[in-house]
Amino acid sequence: MSLDNRLQEPRPGLLSRLSAGETVLGALLLLIILVGLMLVGKGAYMKVKAELSQVLLERAFDARLAGDGHVRPWPWADFDTEARISAPRLGQSAIVLKGASGEALAFGPAWLVNTPQPGDPGTAVIAAHRDTHFRWLKDVRPGDLLEVTRADGAKLTFRAGEGRVAPWDRSGINAQAIGRHLVLATCFPFDATEHGPLRYILSAELIGDTGPDGTIARLSGSDGLTTLAAAAAVKSF
């Protein structure tokens, strides 16, 4: 605004010295600037909302972990918290919501309800926006550890594998796959500003599971299960 003030009023009494045409031009430019500011504000609002809401979500999730039942992060929130995901090497963490509606994704990463819970047999899928909560996904390297704390208190550690790119409807992710996998997904390319059909898919394998009481409940790599071709083949409708 200060720039614009300087332009419009380089000397006092500017308005009176402007001709009719110049006033119209000035008003038009002012209008364009206003629209621009609104757009910038809208974009910034999305980002700020995404960051700030995580604070409230964090609080709601802690309450859930403490056993206070389903605490709504804020009274008009339309979703539940489901888990916490963190990438210790990158120092990133976020609260995962249940159900990937556009609404929920604006506030945090979302676990797709048609996939098993992280740590259960099969492939759990968590998706988030590339420009907010999963901005760090491109920096995850194969071998990195990813930690998931479920709402039931289970702490799980996954080891990241290779990332790949696929169209959204041909993800190649089998929710019933053998073993216990976690897939983190976000939009691709990372720096595009448009909606697009491509997704970046990072798969991870479960390496250990600490129960709510702190004991190692089970060690379940996929190897024990793969020998019997066990998983459901065609179940996802």
Binding site: L3, D4, L7, L29, I32, I33, V35, G36, L37, M38, L39, V40, G41, K42, G43, A44, M46, K47, A100, G102, L105, A106, A110, L112, N114, T115, T123, V125, A127, A128, H129, R130, D131, T132, F134, W168, D169, R170, S171, G172, I173, N174, A175, Q176, A177, V183, A185, T186, C187, A192, T193, E194, H195, G196, R199, A231, A232, A233, V234, S236
Partner: peptide, 30 residues
Amino acid sequence: EQSAEVALPQTATLADRHILMGLMLIAFAI
């Protein structure tokens, strides 16, 4: 097994785009 797969949601916001377009409009006016 490979054929049963999960469709992924839209995970891009238009936030960056809005900011970019807003900045460009302001720059143009100036």
